[in-house]
């Protein structure tokens, strides 16, 4: 079965860039969400074993998504992809359960490095 991967960003362009940075041979089923509410909905529909999550979004932002996942004890491998390059943003995201933090603009080397490190994708 393909791995359900969710890409969350309010920008369509940014979602495309993230999807393009994913390994081509990775056996996944990609879904997209434009804000935190949609992300949690997709999670509950089983579409997010791995989540690429933007932080700055209207409505419900990425920090709130992380808080919700943590509070509800939900199981999802979250990689934050954000333009917020404050070191503190990364620290907070990781405290809230994010496994990795990628600074925008995203590049595929970084994605592969993280996925390989956690054994999610072997190339």
């Amino acid at each position: 079965m393909s791995l359900p991967v969710l890409v969350v960003d309010d920008s369509g362009m940014s979602r495309k860039l993230t999807i393009r940075a994913l390994p081509k041979e990775w056996d996944i089923e990609i879904s997209q969400a434009a804000n935190g509410f949609e992300a949690l909905e997709a999670y509950h529909d089983g579409k997010a074993h791995v989540m690429f999550l933007d932080l700055t979004m209207p409505g419900m932002d990425g920090f709130e998504v992380l808080e919700t996942l943590q509070r509800e004890g939900l199981d999802c491998f979250v990689i934050v992809v954000s333009a917020d390059v404050q070191p503190e943003a990364e620290i907070r995201a990781k405290e809230l359960g994010a496994m990795a933090f990628i600074r925008k603009p995203i590049n595929s080397e970084k994605v592969i490095e993280i996925l390989s490190e956690y054994g999610i994708y072997e190339h």
């Binding site: 920008s11 369509g12 362009m13 940014s14 700055t56 954000s82 333009a83 917020d84 390059v85 404050q86 925008k104 603009p105």
Partner: peptide, 16 residues
């Protein structure tokens, strides 16, 4: 959308 996203990235650097 593209302009908003490149602004977002620039803003992140300014915020930092």
């Amino acid at each position: 959308d593209a302009l908003q996203e490149i602004t977002n990235i620039a803003m992140g650097q300014a915020g930092s």
